[in-house]
Amino acid sequence: MNNTIPALGLGTFRLKGDAALDSVRQGLQAGYRLIDTAQIYGNEAEVGQAIADSGVPRRELFLTTKVWTEHLAKDRLADSLKESLRKLRTEQVDLTLIHWPSPGGAVPVAEFMGALADAQDQGLTRLIGVSNFNNALLQQAIDAVGADRIASHQIELHPYLQNRTATGFAKARGIHVTSYMTLAYGKVLGDPVIGEIAAARGATPAQVVLAWAMQSGYAVIPSSTKRVNLDSNLKAATLVLRADEMKRIAGLDRGERLVNPEGLAPKWD
């Protein structure tokens, strides 16, 4: 199995049933090797089926799932992950993330990070990490298991929300960052600056934004149900933006957060 997190993967957020099955099947055919899912997405079984049908050897894939808040307690986390493995038809995932911190701190960070580390020690997951933490919670996670053990912090990150406080905090502690919602639900694709760069480079706006994120050091996990978009997004890995283009995109940050569920989201930095 891969030892590092691939820079470009396939997300499955909001994909259900046949849509999830078809997207992952097509993605694997196109050449994606990182597949990102989660317990709450309700599509782990479809992801598992698509992988089984693909004929792609498991060792060539990097499979990520995320533990939902209902399963964070020490006596529930490992069992929930075993259920995820059953649905995904694999003995081990490559990366397991805590999807959101426990609402209201109902389950202490030290408890669920300890349980996640135990699951790693049991061989249920090769790597562990977190998602949607603020810096104070990430520090608690570091205090619980050590920064070296946290393979990635997955956060909303796109040209309109560049999240520099969170990324700087993680980077200073050697923690890799994965960007989700990199295209901001498509909102950034109509941005004039992105459009100008895309036109000048003979690229699509999506390729420009994904290339910007990857050149910034982040992994990206865009999703699509259309083969043409799946193929096109993959080409972002070969697009190298110039320093002036990166600077123009850096100037688009306006702190526009799109994912902020009440009762679930922590107080953001």
Rank of each mutant, 00 (worst) to 15 (best):
T90Q: 05
G9N: 02
T64N: 06
D22S: 15
E83F: 02
K66G: 04
T12E: 01
Q39K: 13
F62S: 00
K16E: 13
R33A: 10
G129S: 13
V107L: 01
M214E: 01
E83R: 15
G48D: 07
A172K: 11
G190V: 01
D244I: 10
L241G: 10
I197F: 12
L252K: 11
L252F: 11
S223L: 08
S102E: 01
V208N: 10
I197D: 12
Y180S: 02
L10I: 05
L252H: 09
A117K: 04
L157G: 02
L241Y: 05
V107Y: 00
A166V: 13
E60H: 02
L97C: 08
S232C: 10
P159Q: 09
K187N: 14
R248L: 14
A7R: 14
V188H: 00
G9Q: 01
V145F: 07
A198E: 13
I98S: 03
F112R: 00
L252R: 08
D36L: 13
G11I: 02
I150M: 05
I142K: 05
R149Y: 03
S152G: 05
G31P: 07
G11H: 03
K66Q: 12
I142M: 12
R25W: 04
Q140N: 04
S84C: 04
P57Y: 01
G105L: 03
G42L: 09
V109Q: 00
G251W: 08
Q162P: 11
A119R: 00
A38C: 08
K171V: 04
L241V: 10
E256C: 04
S216D: 04
D191W: 00
T238M: 09
D244T: 13
S179C: 06
M1W: 02
A151Q: 08
T182P: 12
G195P: 12
L210V: 11
F62A: 01
D148V: 10
P57G: 06
R257N: 07
K16W: 05
G11S: 07
A52L: 10
R89D: 09
P222R: 06
S80C: 06
P192F: 08
L81A: 05
L258Y: 06
T69F: 12
A73G: 07
P108T: 01
R173A: 04
A250S: 14
L138R: 10
S84K: 00
I249L: 15
Q122K: 07
A236W: 02
R58V: 04
P103G: 05
G17E: 15
